[in-house]
Amino acid sequence: MKIIAISGSLRPNSSNTALLYVVAKLAPKNLDLTIYKGLTDLPHFTPELDGDTLPTSVRDWRGLLEKCDGVIISTPEYAYGMPGVLKNALDWIVSSGELVGKPVATISASPSELGGSKAHASLVLTLAALAANLVEGGSVTIPFIGKKLNANGELTDLNTVQSLKFLLDALVRGIIDNRK
Score class of each variant (00 low, 15 high):
residue 140 V to Q: 09
residue 119 A to H: 07
residue 111 P to S: 00
residue 122 S to M: 04
residue 128 A to C: 03
residue 79 A to Q: 14
residue 95 S to C: 05
residue 115 G to F: 04
residue 107 I to L: 09
residue 98 E to N: 09
residue 98 E to H: 06
residue 138 G to D: 13
residue 126 T to C: 03
residue 137 G to A: 10
residue 135 V to F: 10
residue 131 A to Y: 10
residue 119 A to P: 04
residue 77 E to M: 05
residue 92 W to N: 04
residue 139 S to M: 12
residue 127 L to N: 08
residue 119 A to D: 08
residue 95 S to R: 13
residue 80 Y to W: 14
residue 138 G to M: 11
residue 128 A to P: 00
residue 111 P to N: 03
residue 99 L to G: 03
residue 133 N to K: 12
residue 139 S to L: 11
residue 102 K to T: 02
residue 135 V to C: 12
residue 120 H to M: 12
residue 84 G to F: 02
residue 114 L to A: 13
residue 101 G to W: 00
residue 112 S to V: 00
residue 112 S to K: 05
residue 108 S to W: 08
residue 142 I to R: 12
residue 129 A to V: 04
residue 87 K to C: 03
residue 96 S to V: 11
residue 139 S to V: 15
residue 75 T to V: 08
residue 89 A to Q: 07
residue 75 T to N: 12
residue 145 I to S: 15
residue 116 G to K: 09
residue 95 S to A: 14
residue 116 G to C: 02
residue 83 P to E: 01
residue 112 S to F: 08
residue 115 G to T: 06
residue 113 E to T: 01
residue 107 I to E: 08
residue 127 L to H: 04
residue 136 E to N: 14
residue 76 P to H: 13
residue 109 A to V: 02
residue 83 P to A: 09
residue 104 V to A: 04
residue 88 N to W: 01
residue 79 A to P: 01
residue 99 L to A: 09
residue 95 S to W: 01
residue 118 K to E: 09
residue 143 P to K: 13
residue 146 G to K: 15
residue 137 G to W: 06
residue 82 M to K: 05
residue 122 S to H: 14
residue 77 E to L: 02
residue 87 K to Y: 01
residue 122 S to C: 04
residue 141 T to K: 12
residue 144 F to T: 13
residue 97 G to D: 03
residue 101 G to A: 07
residue 114 L to W: 10
residue 140 V to F: 12
residue 98 E to C: 11
residue 75 T to L: 08
residue 108 S to V: 00
residue 110 S to D: 04
residue 143 P to H: 14
residue 138 G to Y: 11
residue 144 F to W: 15
residue 79 A to H: 13
residue 89 A to R: 08
residue 137 G to R: 09
residue 124 V to R: 13
residue 138 G to L: 13
residue 95 S to P: 00
residue 140 V to D: 07
residue 146 G to V: 10
residue 80 Y to C: 08
residue 108 S to H: 07
residue 111 P to E: 07
residue 97 G to V: 11
residue 126 T to I: 02
residue 88 N to S: 05
residue 135 V to A: 14
residue 137 G to P: 10
residue 121 A to D: 10
residue 104 V to H: 03
residue 79 A to V: 15
residue 124 V to T: 15
residue 122 S to R: 01
residue 93 I to R: 01
residue 103 P to T: 05
residue 120 H to Y: 08
residue 81 G to L: 00
residue 130 L to C: 04
residue 135 V to W: 10
residue 136 E to M: 10
residue 122 S to L: 00
residue 86 L to N: 05
residue 139 S to E: 13
residue 123 L to G: 03
residue 99 L to R: 02
residue 146 G to S: 15
residue 130 L to F: 03
residue 75 T to M: 11
residue 77 E to Q: 15
residue 97 G to A: 04
residue 75 T to P: 04
residue 105 A to Q: 05
residue 126 T to E: 09
